[in-house]
């Protein structure tokens, strides 16, 4: 049984897995997320990155910001790469008495996970490989300049959805949990204790684990970088990003929202939702209501 952090002060303050000096944008959600993940994971971890913002901003040769062993293979294959690392570590322990038991952590964005990397992820989950997969979801192809992905929400502007995306956001948690893995959870950098405990549980899982963390991109979401954390908090408070976990098949809301804020409060602070018609806002509110009912959030009020 994983021993959980009771307060934010229990989270280790040791240096993280990412050194200062990386080139992530000011206010980037991924930096905050990796800071928390790194403190929980410690140094006995091997990181596999998919192509994306985190990869290009942390390893611009001749520099690397990674304090732990790190490999980037390609865009769509980080899960399969991690399977290979896992297999190698396991068999070397078995055959040659290799004494380390590092955790294997994938760090990938929504494009590399929900779109181009979906097959590779599915294979890894189905095989039951003991890998923790962290999806930092900034809801578009931000590294290439804000193009829509399967994870872009309904109504959001991107450079390939000028009128606001007409389709719904892909339910990655639904897809992932359909693989019957031991642990999956959503997270938010605005709820540090909740996220830290989920990272801990995920890393301790006996098989594959999945962390779906909403990762604010002020450049693509079109807002001031100062309110990045506030924006991801609003996503939770409006019910658009329920914080829950699926632990061995049991779904549990981890951050209750007794009174939800109307979705407008989340939408109006972001330029990507500018100009949404009342009808489209209704669609988004209905989606939040649906999520609220499914995960046990309170009413709007």
């Amino acid at each position: 049984m994983t021993e959980l952090y009771k307060t934010i002060k229990d989270i280790p303050t040791t240096e993280g897995i990412l050194a200062p000096g990386h080139a992530l944008c000011a206010g980037c959600g991924a930096g905050t997320i990796l800071n928390i993940v790194g403190r929980v994971a410690g140094k006995n971890v091997i990181v596999v990155s998919a192509t994306g913002c985190v990869e290009v901003t942390t390893t611009y040769l001749p520099y690397s910001a990674w304090r732990v062993p790190w490999i980037h293979n390609a865009f769509e294959n980080s899960a399969a790469t991690a399977s290979g690392v896992r297999a190698a570590i396991d068999i070397m322990k078995e055959k040659y008495g290799y004494s380390e038991d590092p955790r294997i952590l994938v760090v990938a964005g929504d494009g590399g996970t929900a779109d181009i990397g979906l097959q590779s992820l599915s294979g890894m989950l189905e095989r039951g490989d003991r890998v923790t997969y962290l999806l930092y979801d900034n809801e578009a192809y931000m590294n290439t300049g804000i193009q829509r992905s399967g994870s872009t929400p309904y109504g959001a502007w991107t450079t390939t959805s000028w009128e606001g995306k007409p389709e719904m956001k892909k339910d990655m948690m639904g897809i992932v949990t359909a693989h019957h893995i031991p642990y999956a959870a959503t997270g938010s950098p605005a709820y540090i204790l909740d996220l830290a405990n989920k990272v801990k549980k995920a890393l301790d899982a006996e098989g594959p684990s999945f962390l779906h963390v909403l990762s604010d991109c002020n450049l693509g979401w079109r807002h001031d970088s100062k309110i990045s954390v506030e924006v991801t908090r609003l996503a939770v408070q409006t019910g658009l990003w329920p914080l829950y976990e699926v632990d061995h098949g049991v779904t549990k809301l981890t951050v209750p929202v007794p009174k939800r804020k109307p979705v407008e409060e989340y939408l109006k602070v972001q330029g990507r939702f500018k100009g949404l018609t009342p009808d489209r806002i209704k669609v988004i509110q209905a989606y939040a209501d649906q999520l609220a009912q499914r995960f046990g959030l309170g009413p709007v009020g």
Partner: peptide
């Protein structure tokens, strides 16, 4: 693996380890 793309990807991961 679920494809040859993943076969070579996993081979890269395992060899790197």
């Amino acid at each position: 693996v679920e494809s040859e793309h993943s076969a070579m990807s996993a081979a890269v991961g395992a060899s790197a380890a």
